[in-house]
Simulated scan of single mutants.
Amino acid sequence: MSFQAYLDNIEAKTGKTPADFKKLAEAKGFLLDGNLNPATKATEITNWLKEDFGLGHGHAMAIYTTFKGKTE
């Protein structure tokens, strides 16, 4: 599955784009000024995405990867 397919599936399941998740992550303090908060561990973010949005590990990691700046 391509990276874009992961993102498309996430949007179909949750109704949220990576930009939406980024705003939510900023509100939770996972991101500061659009960048990953150095005090936040990847596991904290993936657990949040799994618990609150029902994402699997691979899909949660895809969103985390967008927070690191990957777009493709």
Rank of each mutant, 00 (worst) to 15 (best):
E51D: 06
T66G: 02
F53R: 07
L31I: 09
E72S: 15
G29A: 10
E11G: 03
F53E: 06
A62G: 04
S2L: 11
T71S: 15
P38A: 04
G58R: 08
M61I: 15
A5F: 05
F21V: 06
K22V: 12
E51M: 14
K13R: 13
F30N: 00
L7G: 05
T14V: 10
T43Y: 01
F30V: 02
S2C: 07
F53V: 05
T65N: 14
H57F: 03
K68C: 15
T43S: 04
T17P: 04
A5G: 13
G34M: 06
A60I: 08
Q4D: 15
T14W: 00
D52F: 10
F67I: 00
N47F: 09
F67G: 02
T40V: 08
S2F: 01
I45L: 00
K16L: 15
T17L: 13
P18L: 05
K41I: 00
I10P: 01
N9A: 06
I63F: 00
W48K: 05
A19R: 05
F3Y: 15
D33S: 14
H59S: 10
D33R: 06
L32V: 14
F21G: 11
P18S: 12
H59P: 02
L24Q: 06
A62C: 09
H57R: 03
K70G: 08
Y64C: 07
Y6D: 14
A62K: 07
A19P: 12
E11F: 03
F53Q: 11
D20G: 05
E26K: 06
G29R: 09
I10D: 04
I10C: 04
N47H: 03
I63G: 02
E11C: 11
P38Y: 12
I63P: 02
A60P: 04
G34L: 13
N35Q: 10
I10F: 04
H59N: 11
M1E: 15
A12E: 02
K50Y: 05
T46P: 04
K50M: 12
K22M: 13
K13Q: 07
K50A: 06
K13C: 07
F67V: 04
P38I: 12
K50I: 07
